[in-house]
Design a protein around this nucleic acid. Structure first.
Lengths: 225, 225
DNA sequence: TTTAATTAATCAATCGTTTGATTAATTTTG
DNA sequence: CAAAATTAATCAAACGATTGATTAATTAAA
């Protein structure tokens, strides 16, 4: 009944659509309940597919998790990397574009990033944590390279802690997106709501991060030390 | 064998010591594997107690979790609240003391905070998330009150986003402490190592947060806009 | 018809919890 | 003080439920 209703879009939902649909649902359930908390029965139930289809398509529960992973990171690095490698603009402009792209993408895919962050926050080192750490580090490296370039060129202050600044940028985002119950209380509206994200959170976060970076990094006039 | 060896301290390890021991172990296991990932068998095994003792002492697995909780938050608020209510010092000094106390306590109890953060990052609202959110908000409120006081008194800039600044302070800490695999790669040493935490991470984080706050909040000379 | 997709039924393993029995410690009673 | 009664602590074993995974049978597609 409900199943037939959902095939209204193209009348013929082919294999890849179905796999994608499963991954969409799984991503959300993983974000809601965590990897261990999300059972294969619940995921398949929410996706309206037979439980065995998860194993048929992805081999195992962990296969589903990894498939979500690979789907997201395929286009993950390219944009940010291109910004970092663009030599036609100065460091501050790079930073500006980086923030723009980063905030947009990370808020849009917040389910994925919540899931990601929860897994990497397990202190026990596993194959999965290594893999996640490696991927996240690529983003970090681009950001850090921009900062260091700006410091060398004299564009940014010399006495800055670029490493902890990384923690600030990514940590601020994480706090807002990954702990929605708290951040919603702080800023006064539901940060999980799509419309709030687009019209309020994204522009505000962009503006804020830029002004924070500017205050900490850019030499306005003379001495700070 | 191993059990008799551990009774060397006072020869009579009484009840509260044992309960505390269980909570110590459980806190660590929860941080390592998450709430769902940590089984009662593993916890009791690591603590060298019979599995039934968890239920005997704490009623249930969730009871263990809550007991860890209550043990930490008892002295949680008092220090920060006293700083916020101290009217003999100005806003910046309050902020300074807040950062000092906060960083010390939060790095010392990093296992607890990792555990906490992972549970609150579940987007599905539960009784537990509500309770955690309520407690965390107390810390947030103290910090925010200090900022707002400083803005009113003219000590801090007017055009600041105090709400997102909260996300920055707590988010920066979270990023460093809760994702040790990444942050260790970034700053070049193991952030989970106790000695590194005390001699390197803590002072560096304090210095950094203060300078970041100063750059963003304090009017050094004149215009920024 | 042959292959691929999908299903219901079932698997062993593990989950959190409970049980009844046993031991150790404490209190009450004579 | 000594014996009896009571309480607290601890244990191995088992509970029903749920987990991820697999099977064999059935349907749809090529």
């Amino acid at each position: 009944m409900n199943q037939t209703m959902e095939k209204d879009k193209t009348e013929k939902a082919d294999k890849t659509d179905k796999k994608d649909h499963i991954l969409d649902v799984a991503e959300k359930v993983f974000a809601e309940l965590g990897y261990d908390g999300a059972s294969t029965r619940l995921i398949s139930g929410e996706a309206n597919v037979n439980m065995a289809m998860l194993n048929y398509y992805f081999g195992s529960k962990e296969g589903v998790f990894m498939a979500i992973f690979e789907r997201r990171i395929s286009s993950f690095q390219s944009i940010l990397l291109s910004i970092g490698n663009d030599d036609s603009i100065n460091a501050w402009e790079k930073l500006d574009r980086y923030i723009e792209s980063y905030v947009d993408r990370v808020v849009n895919n917040n389910c994925f990033h919540v899931m990601l962050h929860r897994e990497i926050s397990k202190s026990k080192k596993t194959e999965l944590t290594d893999q996640i750490a490696g991927i996240m580090m690529k983003n970090v490296s681009v950001f850090q390279a921009i900062i260091d370039t700006g410091i060398k060129s004299g564009e940014f202050k010399k006495d800055t802690d670029s490493q902890l600044l990384v923690a600030t940028i990514f940590g601020t985002k994480n706090y807002l997106v990954n702990t929605p119950h708290i951040s919603s209380l702080i800023i006064g509206y539901d940060v999980m709501d799509k419309e709030n994200q687009d019209k309020k959170l994204k522009p505000r976060l962009k503006t804020y991060l830029k002004s924070l970076l500017k205050a900490y990094l850019v030499n306005e006039n003379d001495n700070n030390k």
